[in-house]
Design a protein around this nucleic acid. Sequence first.
DNA 1: TGTTCAATCTTGTCGCCGCCAAGATGAGGG
DNA 2: CCCTCATCTTGGCGGCGACAAGATTGAACA
Lengths: 191, 191
Amino acid sequence: MDTGLSLLEELGLEDLSLRKIAASIGVSHAAPEHHFPSLRHLLNALAAEGFGSFREGMLSHMQAAPLHPADQLRAALRGYLAFATEKPHLFRLMFNRNRLDWEDPALGAAGEAARQVLAAICRPVADRLGIETPEGRVSIEHLVWSQAHGYAHLVIDGKIEIDSACHAPNSVPLPDLVNFLLPGEPADAKT
Amino acid sequence: MDTGLSLLEELGLEDLSLRKIAASIGVSHAAPEHHFPSLRHLLNALAAEGFGSFREGMLSHMQAAPLHPADQLRAALRGYLAFATEKPHLFRLMFNRNRLDWEDPALGAAGEAARQVLAAICRPVADRLGIETPEGRVSIEHLVWSQAHGYAHLVIDGKIEIDSACHAPNSVPLPDLVNFLLPGEPADAKT
DNA sequence: TGTTCAATCTTGTCGCCGCCAAGATGAGGG
DNA sequence: CCCTCATCTTGGCGGCGACAAGATTGAACA
C-alpha cells in the first residue's frame, strides 16, 4: 500500500504495475493479488486513501486560517492546490473515471467526505450573497469547485504557472458570471 | 489515424492499443509502427488533431454568437464544454502530461493556437474591467481557463451534472476573487 | 521496357504486463 | 497431531509495445 503510493508518484500512473510494487517490496510477482483481486482494486484503495489525506489537507489549511468565510474559502482552495501539486499522480488517479470503480462504497464515502468540505465552505459564501435556494448553493459549489479543479489540473499539467499574485486560485458565484463580470452589458444571447 | 480517433472514443485512452487499431483496419500488428515510431507519436498526432478541432469548435460557436465580448466569452466556453463532452477521451488525452511529448513542435503549435483563442477572448474582458497590465491579462486568462477546464473535467468525470441554469460554465476576473465575492470583508489573511 | 529503390506491410521474437491456477509454507486452534 | 486458513511461490496464458529481418509493390528513371 505505502509502496504503491510512493511508486505511483515516482513512476506515474501509467507506469505503475502490480509486478513493480511486488518487486519493490521483495515478494513474488503474484503476491499482491491476494490482497487486491485486481489492479483496479489497488487503485481504488490508493484513491480512497488519497481522498482522505486530500480532505485532511484542506481541513488543516482551514484550521490555520481565520474563521471568516473568505479566509476559510481561500484556505481550502490553497489546500486543494497544495495537494494536487504535491501528489500530482495521485490527484490525477483520484479523478480518473476509467481506472476507478466508483461503485466501491469505500471510495464513494471517501470522495463524498472530501466533497462535503467544499460544500461546507461554500454555504456561508452563498449566505453572504443572499442565495438561499438549494440550486443556488449547488451552483456556487460547482463554480468554486470548477475553479479550484481546473486551476490544479492546469498547474500539474504544466499549462500554467502558479500565479504568485493570487496565492490560491479563487472562484466566483452566480449562475451567469458574465453578467456579473460585465455589468450592464446585454444578457445571454441564446439561453 | 481516423480509426485511432474513433477507437479512442470507443475504448477509452487506457484500452487503446496500436494492435487494436491495426486489427480494426485489417493490417498486421506491426503495420502502424512504420507511420508512427511509437505509441507516443500516434497519441501526439491524435492530440494535435484534437487541438485543431477543439479550436475550430470554439471558433464556430463564437461565429454564431453576437460580437459583444460577453457573448463571445460565453460562446467560447460553450464550445470548450461541448468539445469535452463530445470527445471526452480525446479531451483527457490532450491534457495528459504523461502520455504526450510537448517537445513535438506540431503538438505545441496546435495547443498554442487553441490557447490563443481563449487569450483573444479574454483581452476585451480585461479592457472592460480596466485591466491594462500584462500580468492582469494573464490572471484573467488563467481564471477563465481554470473555470472552463475544471468544469469540463468535473462533468466528463461524472462528478457534477451540467448546470442547466448556466448553459456554459462562466468565470470571473480579478487576482483575488474572494475580495470580489465578498466585498468589504477583510482582505487576504496571509499573502 | 527493364532495373532500381524507397515506402509499406508481414512475420517472428523479446520482455513486461494483468490475471489465473496449483501448490508450498507456516502459524493457531480443535 | 492434524486441520485450516492466510500468505506466498511457481508457472503459464494472452495481450501489449517495440524491434529485426524479410516480402511486396509501385513509381521513377535510363
